[in-house]
Computed example of a mutant assay.
Amino acid sequence: MDTTRERAPLTRVPLSDAPRPPLDLTLPPWPGEHVEAGGVRLHIRRTPGPTDETAVYVHGLGGSSLNWTDLSAQLSGHAQGIAVDLPGAGRSEPPGGYKFDLVDHVDTLAKFMRGMELGPVHLFGNSMGGAVSMVLAAKYPELVRTLTLVSPAVPDLRPLPNRMSDPRIPFAMMPFIGARFRRQLAALTPMQRAQQLVNLCFAVPSMVPPHRMDETAQEFADRAKIAWAAQSLMATTMGLFRAWLVPPSQSLWRIVPKITAPTLVVWGTQDKLVTVRKAPRTARLLPRGRLLVLPNTGHVAQIERPETVARAALGLWEAAKEDIW
């Protein structure tokens, strides 16, 4: 029986009035570098800010540290930012024998954070990065001060083709027939792939600035030259699916109630990848969770609505500091 109490209504999610830089959608990506810490080597992007507070940003499936440019800028007056490329994503080459399961990502990120002497941090996760962040917050609570989840990839077993940037992707993973579909996908131009991704993830794709489209297309072009990129993406996808298909006793739904950090759940009403219908249950199961649902927003609210997400995240930080969340 679910005995968790109902959370506060949406209107009571505190939106901070703390000062933030003016939103500048022309900002280039933050500088990237490879860093080795805790026996782990990851590519990260740093956002300068006060060093007494740190925000760590974890991207979703097929994403990278580029997904946090605007939100981390909005929060830069309050915390330094570290956006990671998980192994096999962005520019982080996976080590030999890496399994690409959620637990691998969680343990790797925890080792890296400890090696950098980070924690407790303000942890952000989008989509699969949200699932990684949930498990990390439950397994390593000492590393997490607050948790912000943007459309976390909780189990959603609706048919897959309509929830992927190209409906041919599931077929490309199959034996025998997969090779034909992989050739078709490889023939797409980087800009075509970027447009597919934006159409899937954004509620209003036409609102994406041209230079952000160029950045996304360039990332597709860069990854096409990396030998391990395609196989890593496929393995990571399968790792996420495995996390959704485990027995109920091992489900992500059993992990959520173990999270003790004050948590903000943000979801877009037009999310095509993980239905907003999962949002109330996610927030309700969190011992210290609240829910903010954003209209006319898709799967990547931190990109589509960075100002609103920043105000809500700062409200979470302020309330957690005063222990009123």
Score class of each variant (00 low, 15 high):
227 A>Q: 15
142 E>K: 10
199 N>V: 02
226 I>P: 04
197 L>N: 14
275 T>M: 04
201 C>G: 02
9 P>H: 08
224 A>N: 15
137 A>V: 03
152 P>V: 08
284 R>Y: 06
284 R>Q: 13
101 D>G: 14
307 E>G: 05
272 K>I: 02
231 Q>G: 14
57 Y>C: 06
16 S>Y: 01
184 Q>S: 10
48 P>M: 02
94 P>S: 07
24 D>T: 07
36 E>P: 04
253 W>I: 04
215 E>D: 14
68 W>D: 05
40 V>L: 00
87 P>Q: 05
171 F>Y: 14
229 A>K: 02
99 K>R: 14
174 M>G: 09
27 L>F: 11
214 D>I: 13
204 V>Y: 10
202 F>A: 10
39 G>K: 04
86 L>S: 05
62 G>R: 03
145 R>K: 13
274 V>E: 01
301 A>E: 03
210 P>T: 05
207 M>R: 15
214 D>N: 10
13 V>E: 02
185 L>I: 05
325 W>L: 08
86 L>I: 02
276 V>C: 10
199 N>I: 03
164 M>A: 12
154 V>I: 11
135 V>E: 13
226 I>V: 15
165 S>C: 00
172 A>R: 01
320 A>T: 08
83 A>D: 09
229 A>C: 04
12 R>T: 12
312 A>S: 03
93 E>Q: 14
209 P>W: 05
25 L>M: 15
79 A>E: 07
153 A>I: 03
72 S>M: 15
23 L>W: 05
158 R>D: 12
297 T>G: 03
97 G>P: 11
59 H>V: 01
62 G>S: 11
41 R>G: 09
61 L>E: 11
317 W>Q: 14
140 Y>Q: 07
60 G>D: 03
185 L>A: 06
243 A>M: 08
250 Q>V: 04
151 S>N: 15
214 D>Y: 09
231 Q>R: 14
299 H>D: 03
65 S>I: 01
172 A>I: 00
203 A>M: 02
216 T>F: 10
93 E>P: 06
180 R>H: 12
88 G>I: 05
199 N>A: 13
100 F>T: 01
297 T>M: 04
206 S>C: 04
218 Q>W: 12
170 P>A: 13
122 H>P: 00
65 S>Y: 11
310 A>K: 02
80 Q>W: 05
170 P>R: 09
92 S>A: 11
299 H>L: 01
173 M>K: 08
192 Q>K: 11
181 F>T: 08
318 E>G: 03
16 S>G: 09
248 P>E: 15
77 G>M: 12
218 Q>S: 15
83 A>R: 08
323 D>Q: 13
269 T>R: 11
283 A>K: 04
1 M>N: 12
177 I>V: 15
91 R>I: 00
58 V>T: 13
46 R>M: 07
102 L>N: 11
154 V>S: 00
152 P>W: 09
55 A>P: 04
148 T>C: 11
222 D>W: 14
103 V>H: 12
267 W>N: 02
83 A>Y: 09
160 L>F: 12
279 A>Y: 09
221 A>G: 10
325 W>R: 02
126 N>W: 01
168 R>T: 04
61 L>D: 06
26 T>F: 03
19 P>H: 09
110 A>Q: 03
29 P>I: 05
171 F>S: 10
149 L>T: 05
150 V>S: 14
65 S>W: 09
290 R>C: 05
26 T>R: 13
264 L>N: 07
